[in-house]
């Protein structure tokens, strides 16, 4: 039972206030505005507060909206899985095989592509993957192919652009997890007769799952909401949700439909979060 006269301590609130204000100003308030606007309609040049779910119904009535959502999910899952498969061995080599004094340099080299502009990097990939780009020219010159491969302006190009970016991110999260593992785990496994493969499969991999999942969730969120990469590299041969949202804004400034589609995308991200939640813990074990 609290003592009568116990005073409410404002101190802790002072510490969390900046974060709360930040979240309120830059997440809660914009989200509320977006939710409200999603119930309006753009009629002619006016935004009309019609308070209906018409914009949400459009999503289910128009096949191309639904198709865009499915495309987004497919591309995001492919990118996330591919990035994990490439990043894990990369992080493992840096953590286990590179001498500790060189690990920092190896990490810097790994994230070097982060330092270039995202847009410039995407356009660069377009030139690399083009019919007369370096990949096709190399394959043609060594006789591996007779005709250029259609790499640019395709889903393949979008996935390559994404994977290039997210492998760096996942490498960091997995590396951070790997270097925290005590060597005693492996020694104990060896003492109990486990070989290197068994140790990795039954000990190291499960213990690094949190790092993988944190990176995978970040990849999922950033990938499914990205507009630049599919717009530059996809050649509009299929549409992803961010592109469909931008189409609503481009000329007609149809913010209500764009808001409704953005909220539906947020719901998908929230469902993904619930799926990843058991591994995403901020506190250290």
């Amino acid at each position: 039972m609290a003592a009568r006269g116990q005073r409410f301590d404002l101190g802790p609130w002072g510490f969390v206030a900046p974060a709360l204000l930040w979240t309120a100003a830059f997440f809660v308030a914009p989200f509320v505005v977006m939710a409200v606007v999603s119930l309006w309609e753009r009629i002619g040049t006016d935004l009309v507060a019609s308070w209906s779910f018409a914009n949400y119904l459009k999503f289910f009535e128009r096949g191309h909206f639904l198709e865009a959502m499915l495309n987004s999910l497919e591309v995001t899952v492919i990118v996330t899985v591919t990035s994990i498969l490439l990043a894990y061995p990369f992080a493992w080599i840096i953590a286990e095989k590179v001498p500790p004094r060189l690990q920092r340099m190896a990490l810097v080299l790994a994230i070097l592509p982060f330092w270039t502009s995202y847009v410039v990097r995407s356009y660069s990939w377009l030139l690399v993957l083009a019919n007369n780009g370096i990949i096709n020219e190399t394959l043609l010159s060594i006789g591996l192919i007779a005709e250029p491969l259609d790499l640019a302006n395709s889903r393949t190009a979008t996935v390559i652009g994404f994977v290039h970016f997210f492998v760096m991110l996942l490498t960091l999260t997995i590396y951070a997890n790997l270097v925290q593992l005590s060597p005693n785990y492996r020694k104990a496994a060896a003492d109990l007769g486990a070989g290197p493969l068994s140790t990795f499969w039954f000990v190291v991999l499960p213990l690094t799952l949190p790092g993988i999942m944190v990176g995978a969730f970040l990849t999922f969120v950033l990938c499914i909401g990205d507009y630049i990469t599919p717009q530059v590299l996809g050649g509009n041969n299929e549409l992803l949700m961010p592109q469909v949202i931008m189409l609503q804004i481009g000329r007609r400034a149809d913010f209500p439909t764009a808001s409704a589609l953005a909220i539906l995308l947020m719901i998908v991200v929230t469902i993904a979060y619930l799926g990843f939640a058991r591994w995403i813990r901020l506190e250290r074990a």
């Binding site: 356009y123 377009l126 640019a152 302006n153 717009q231 050649g235 509009n236 041969n237």
Partner: peptide
């Protein structure tokens, strides 16, 4: 082969 905005189509 592609549908692109100004920079993509010009490139």
């Amino acid at each position: 082969k592609l549908v692109g905005e100004v920079v993509s189509s010009q490139t």
